[in-house]
């Protein structure tokens, strides 16, 4: 038994000589990266005017759009004469860019 074992061990040693831990290796299939399509981005204009400065000339599209302060009566210093006036309150204009320009006037004292 012992002799057989020794012989077996000897045989194993001989077999082990030259045997290495090297094994053929390969990689699993790579996970494909998704394609990157064309990428578009849009910038919308802010709510404020895109026109910036008032572009001359200003044009009043409609006389009827004018607004007036309430009519008041003015008198001469001796009280003999009187007149009624209606002060301009607002004019709506359109500039060269087509933007609306509103002019507001104060009521006279």
């Amino acid at each position: 038994m012992s002799k057989d074992l020794t012989a077996a061990l000897d045989a194993l040693t001989r077999e082990a000589a030259g045997l290495t831990s090297r094994v053929d290796r390969s990689l699993p299939a790579a996970k494909g990266a998704p394609a990157i399509p064309a990428r578009a981005g849009t910038g919308k204009p802010a709510a404020t005017s895109g026109g910036g400065a008032i572009a001359s000339p200003l044009t009043e599209p409609s006389y009827d759009a004018r607004l007036w302060h309430p009519a008041t009566t003015i008198y001469s210093s001796d009280g003999l004469f009187s007149a009624t006036r209606t002060p301009l309150k607002q004019i709506t204009m359109t500039d060269a860019n087509g933007a609306t320009v509103v002019l507001n006037f104060a009521a006279p004292p």
Binding site: I36, R39, A40, T42, G43, K44, P45
Partner: peptide
């Protein structure tokens, strides 16, 4: 609509 758009090409 005054929108501004940039489109970068696909990789």
């Amino acid at each position: 609509d005054h929108n501004f758009t940039i489109e970068f090409p696909a990789v």
